[in-house]
Structures are given as structure tokens and as C-alpha cells.
Amino acid sequence: METFELKAEEKVRVRFAPSPTGPFHIGGARTGLFNYLFARKYQGTFILRIEDTDVERCKKEYEEEIIKSLKWLKIEWDEGPDVGGNFGPYRQSERKQIYLKYLKKLLEEEKAYFCFCKKEDLEAQKQYFLSIGKPPKYNGKCRYLSKEEVEKRLKEGQPFVIRFKVVPKKIVFEDLIRGKIEFDGSLIEDFVIAKNFESFLYNFTCVVDDFEMKITHVI
């Protein structure tokens, strides 16, 4: 394994975060093994986190199979749903209050917003962009609703999702494998991070968890 230079004060914390939506497979074993070996090489912490936000597809028997398979492979974790740790719970289904806290924070800071667009309207937008040869992208219609209008619609009980407000600027970061990575944020739509105040999407929960659990490297 290639050696990387780490900051002197940096304590490696990595995670394997499978979703129990089907049988454990070789791709999952590979990812788990890479994270485990990286943690052991740098005397760090290896975490097992179960990402079971997909209520319809996630099953307990698949989670049990993941744990059983990892143990068969002799991959041991330092923190996880069965061994505990200082940053638990380690199942996303048990962390809803944590996600709600950050969701409300984003709304209060106007970094996220309520979207009331109907499915048929979103589909019409998608077809329009495709018809002119451009990738489909949400047009940000609800981004500009006034607070009064939002409150009115919420009181009326209109269904909504919550979207993250993407800043249209160049995004640059350093990847240990690929080096400098940059892309144009203006090409990314304001994506959905929650269906409501009870149902949170993966692209939101995994970021919150990595931050809360002090993950240093994502492999």
C-alpha cells in the first residue's frame, strides 16, 4: 500500500458504511478491506456504520449478513452498531434527531429551502432541458419564495421536499490519489436532501455522519 504523508496531529478515522438493501457482495468486501487496512497501517480507527435510511429496501437480515461476512473475512472494527463507541449510534435509522438538528440549521442559515414543486412540473422541466440538448437541472423556482409564502404553504399542508442551496462557483479540493480536483458548481442543481422532517436522504446523512464522527479519509 502506498504511504501518504499525514498531518502530525491527525488521527486517522475511516469508515465502511454499507446499506443493507441486498446480499453482501465483493465490492463491499473490497471497500471494507481497503478502509480496514488503511486504518491499521496508520494506527487509526476503523468504523462500521450501517446506512439504513432506505426504509423500504433495508432489511435486518442483510445487516446481519454484512456483519457475519466481515467477521468471516477477519475484518474487525473499533466502533460500530454491535461494539458501540463514542460517536454512536452507528445506524442511521437511530440518528434522526441529529439529522433534524443540522437540517433546521441549514434552513435557518438559508443554505437550504423548501421546494413545493409537483412531480409533473419537475418532469416537464426535465423534458424541456433534454429537448434543447442540455442535462436536466432543477430551475430553482422555489429558491426565491418569500418567507411569508413559504409559511403560508406550510400552513396549508402543501407537500414539500428540502433542497440544498448550491453556490454557483468553482469547487476545488485536493485528493490524496488524484491530486487537485476542481469542477464548476454552477452545473450542479439544488439537490434534495430531505423528503420531509422525518425522511432524510443519503447525500445529506452521510455528510452529517462523517462530520459528527470526525472521519478523516473517505475511501
Rank of each mutant, 00 (worst) to 15 (best):
F4D: 00
E5W: 00
K7R: 11
A8V: 05
E10V: 06
V12C: 00
V14K: 01
V14T: 07
A17D: 10
P18Q: 10
S19R: 02
S19E: 13
P20A: 12
G22V: 13
P23Q: 12
G27A: 01
G28M: 02
R30D: 02
Y36R: 06
L37D: 08
F38Y: 13
Q43V: 05
G44M: 06
T45Y: 08
T45E: 15
F46D: 12
I47W: 05
E51A: 04
D52C: 11
D52T: 10
T53S: 08
D54K: 03
V55I: 11
V55D: 09
K59I: 08
E63R: 12
E63D: 08
E63H: 10
E64Y: 09
I66F: 15
I66P: 11
K68E: 15
L70R: 09
K71R: 15
K71C: 08
K71H: 14
K71P: 07
W72F: 15
W72L: 15
D78Y: 01
G80A: 03
G80R: 02
P81V: 01
P81M: 00
D82I: 04
G85F: 07
G85E: 04
N86P: 12
F87K: 09
F87R: 08
F87P: 01
G88Q: 01
P89E: 04
R91Q: 08
R91P: 04
R91D: 04
